[in-house]
Every structure is written in structure tokens, then in C-alpha cells.
């Protein structure tokens, strides 16, 4: 997994609450390859039903071509567990997401893909959205080691992140390898469980 340390880049605002993963990538693209999924990012928000580009949707605006940070309203990435919602955004260059809150599974999926979800207070996100809308293409700075986000107004905010997640992101840790280093403990757990709830080991034979 790619490590994440600091990022200074233009930020794209999506000024809406409850942007679900069906909106980030519609289900009909889920059986497709990663490149097709990259192109399908926000598909139904970017295109009208007849396939014409919606010029007002931020991702269609040239000014956001280099955006690598996304700022959105509460509960971003709620809904379906599809990890493609994270990977399509990552493949489109987005490595950090700023919102008052995130869908739980989306949040977890970020950490599996070297992306950083940042939770800031609602009022601060609203201020950032307003600032980004007022000056499209403005930059944000995200600093993971010091756990801060700096807005176009120069105001710096701290954010919370679990030590475990932070460490994995900073070092680009492979979590499966980490877990496999606990193989002995897993095996001991299984042996104990077989004693206590042994019926789980017995499947019907027919």
C-alpha cells in the first residue's frame, strides 16, 4: 500500500450531505475493471441521463483537474460497502477526504488504499466549502504526522486519527503481513474455541 504523509493540493468541494457510495460509483460498474471504474467516478452526477456532461458538477470543471483533496458534507461515503468507491476516487487522484463524518465502511476502506479521511467539525467544513466555492482551485494542506489541515484562509485545524491507522498509513504497512505475524495467537485462539464451542467445527456431512 502507498504511504501517506503530507499533501498540498487543490481541493474539490462537494457541497452535499449523505453522498452515498452508489453516487460515487453506480452499481452497474462494479463488475468492470479498475480503469472502467475510474471513468465511472460520480458517473450519474457528472452526466445527464442522455449522456451530456453536466458543466456545473465540480469534477467536470477544468479548474478541479488537479484536485487531490475532496471536501464534502456529513456522512460522506455512506451506504454500500463497495471498496471501488474509494479506489475510483484514488485512481482519479484523490488521496484525502475532509468531511464532518463518513460512512464507517468507506472510512475503513480508505485506510486499505492509502487514502486519508479527515473529520473536522461541521462549522469548519462549511467554512472550507464556502472558501473553496468562492475561489475554485484553492489549495488545502493535509499533514498526517502533525494531524493538521490548513485551509485557503491559512487557518490550521487539528484532527483525530487512531494511532494504529496513522502508523499504517505513514509507513504504508501491509496489514495482512502484520496479522500473519500473530499466527501463533490465532492458532491458540482457535484451539481454545474448539474446546468451548466445538459445534462450530462440525458441519453437516450430507
Amino acid at each position: 500500500m502507498d504511504a501517506f504523509t503530507t499533501l498540498r493540493a487543490p481541493a474539490m468541494p462537494i457541497n452535499a450531505a449523505n453522498v452515498d457510495t452508489d453516487q460515487i460509483i453506480p452499481a452497474r460498474y462494479l463488475a468492470r475493471g479498475r480503469e472502467a471504474q475510474r471513468e465511472a467516478c460520480f458517473h450519474d452526477l457528472r452526466f445527464d441521463r442522455d449522456g451530456t456532461l453536466r458543466p456545473d458538477f465540480p469534477m467536470n470543471r477544468p479548474v478541479y483537474a488537479d484536485a487531490r483533496i475532496l471536501v464534502a458534507g456529513r456522512n460522506f461515503g455512506c451506504g454500500s460497502s463497495r471498496e471501488s468507491a474509494v479506489t475510483t476516487l484514488v485512481d482519479n487522484g484523490f488521496r484525502a477526504f475532509v468531511a464532518p463524518s463518513f460512512g464507517d465502511i468507506f472510512l475503513n476502506n480508505c485506510f486499505q488504499n492509502g487514502a486519508l479521511p479527515v473529520r473536522l467539525p461541521t462549522e469548519r467544513v462549511e467554512a472550507l466549502l464556502a472558501a473553496l466555492e468562492a475561489s475554485p482551485g484553492a489549495e488545502l494542506s493535509v499533514d498526517l504526522p502533525s494531524q493538521t489541515v490548513t485551509g485557503p484562509d491559512g487557518v490550521e485545524d487539528g484532527f483525530e486519527i487512531d494511532g494504529f491507522r496513522k502508523d499504517c498509513l505513514l509507513r504504508g504497512v501491509d496489514v495482512i503481513d502484520l496479522t500473519l505475524s500473530h499466527a501463533a495467537q490465532i492458532a491458540a485462539f482457535e484451539a481454545r474455541q474448539s474446546q468451548e464451542v466445538g459445534w462450530l467445527d462440525r458441519l453437516p456431512t450430507a
Binding site: S81, R82, E83, V86, I105, N108, N109, Q112, N113, D162, F164, V175, I176, T179, L180, H182, I186, E190
Partner: peptide, 20 residues
């Protein structure tokens, strides 16, 4: 609870998940 694809692969390989 539901998980994403990377975590599915993690469970396949380890039968465990890191959780807070």
C-alpha cells in the same frame, strides 16, 4: 458487520480483523 474487499481478503487469509 459489513466490510470492504481488502478486509474480505484479510479475513480469507487470517480469519481475523483489526477493529477498534
Amino acid at each position: 458487520f459489513g466490510i470492504g474487499q481488502s478486509e474480505v481478503a484479510h479475513v480469507m487469509a487470517t480469519q481475523c480483523l483489526w477493529q477498534r
